[in-house]
């Protein structure tokens, strides 16, 4: 309320930054995507008529989707434990979740190679204890990409969840069980819906950041693990094909925006239902 009138100028730096660093370049991209080589939608037609672009777009959404799901499955117990542990344990957990942030993405990806490749630490260990006879293919495939991405993106899921979970009053859950719900039923009907805002924020963050991933799929992926950012880079770097690259970027941006609106609407509907 307070901000609405008198102190609106507080937003000036942010508005300026977004205006200069986001809106201007994006409108430039948009313009190039419809004005070159001639005015029209030819670049978009190319994207939506060729299997390569549709295939890569689908790949991108699929990889981002599975990454988000895995982050939720792994991140939820972590956030829960963080919210319900002693301050000291909590600090250790926060620290462990943040560690991947402090290393360069290249180092991290190469480290995964050392661990996961056929002659890597993990395969050597598994062969050493006699669990496997032949080394497993743990990298240069979709599995490697997902592992690398989940590790990096987990904090984006854990922290929004954590902040929501710490604010949930434990007595709701107790009330549900006292009234006869099994713990599982109480969890899904009472606890989980209360976590939903955190889960939704985390999922949006992870999903949207995943869509733009680039180095991880290039280094840890296999033949088919190509994401849209790699194609955009290739179009610009190797061919100077700004119009098509711009169109791809716009498709990604609009798609992400639509998804954001959709998820927001869904949460509102769910919110009313509870």
């Amino acid at each position: 309320m307070f901000l609405k009138n008198r102190n609106i100028w507080l937003l000036a730096p942010a508005v300026l930054l977004i205006g200069i660093c986001f809106l201007f370049p994006v409108s430039w991209l948009l313009q190039r995507s419809v004005s070159e080589p001639v005015w029209g939608l030819q670049n978009y037609i190319t994207i939506f008529s060729k299997t390569i672009y549709l295939g890569v777009l689908w790949n991108t959404v699929a990889i981002a989707g599975v990454t988000t799901l895995l982050c939720a499955l792994i991140g939820f117990p972590v956030a829960y434990s963080m919210a319900h542990s002693s301050p000291w344990i909590r600090k250790v957990l926060i620290f462990s979740v943040l560690i991947p942030f402090w290393t360069s993405i290249l180092v991290r990806s190469f480290a995964w190679l050392v661990i996961l490749q056929r002659g890597g630490i993990l395969n050597d260990f598994l062969a050493g204890i006699g669990l496997i006879a032949e080394p497993l293919d743990l990298v240069y495939n979709r599995f490697g990409v997902l592992l690398g991405m989940v590790q990096v993106l987990l904090p984006f899921m854990v922290f929004p969840l954590f902040s929501v979970i710490t604010r949930i009053d434990g007595s709701y859950f107790s009330a549900a069980t006292n009234l006869g719900a099994t713990p599982i039923r109480a969890f899904f009907r009472v606890y989980l819906p209360l976590c939903l805002p955190g889960l939704a924020t985390g999922a949006m963050l992870v999903f949207i950041i995943s869509l733009g991933y680039f180095i991880t799929p290039a280094l840890l992926g296999g033949r088919g693990d190509i994401m849209i950012a790699q194609l955009i880079f290739e179009r610009i770097d190797e061919f100077g094909d700004w119009p098509l690259a711009s169109a791809l970027a716009i498709v990604l941006l609009v798609g992400t925006g639509l998804l954001f609106v959709l998820v927001n609407a869904l949460i509102k509907i769910r919110g009313r239902g509870i």
């Binding site: 299997t51 390569i52 890569v56 088919g224 190509i226 290739e234 061919f239």
Partner: peptide
């Protein structure tokens, strides 16, 4: 041929 073949290359990798 680089542009056309690069596109075909990516397409091939996806199959």
């Amino acid at each position: 041929n680089l542009a056309a073949l690069t596109e075909r290359w990516t397409e091939w990798k996806l199959t």
